[in-house]
């Protein structure tokens, strides 16, 4: 009875681990990193707006802090390297094998 259990668990793990090689998933959006940085900037600015509205910040300080956020984000965008398209070598192998079969 317990032998059955361990075999089932073992099988489940093996299948789950091998699965990504058989079925390839979607590509990563190359511009995702830039998108995320811009979203973060929006979030920080809206936090500052909230604090200005509830009176915690003065106008001068708000402008100064906003400039600081712009500076911080700009330098991050500059440092961001654009990734070249990643070629998955195992995907390539599988494609080759598929092509051989078809020929």
């Amino acid at each position: 009875m317990l032998y059955l259990l361990i075999i089932l668990i073992l099988l489940a793990c093996i299948i789950y681990v091998v699965y990504p090689f058989i079925y390839q998933s979607e590509h990563i959006d190359q511009l995702l990193y830039e998108k995320n940085i811009k979203i973060r900037k929006k979030g920080l600015i809206s936090e500052l707006n909230n604090e200005l509205a509830s009176g915690i910040l003065s106008n001068d300080l708000y402008n100064q802090l906003k400039d600081d956020v712009d500076e911080m984000i700009d330098s991050e965008l500059k440092n961001l390297n654009k990734n070249i398209k990643i070629i998955d070598p195992i995907e390539k192998l599988i494609q080759l094998k598929k092509n051989e079969k078809n020929n």
Binding site: A12, C13, Y16, V17, P20, S25, I86, I87, I90
Partner: peptide
């Protein structure tokens, strides 16, 4: 190192499996 998305996903899945093995 070899930039294989499949291998990376497989490694992630292996780490997920640890949940099952340790729960049992």
């Amino acid at each position: 190192k070899i930039s294989s998305k499949a291998l990376l996903k497989s490694a992630k899945n292996a780490s997920y499996c640890n949940l099952i093995t340790l729960v049992f």
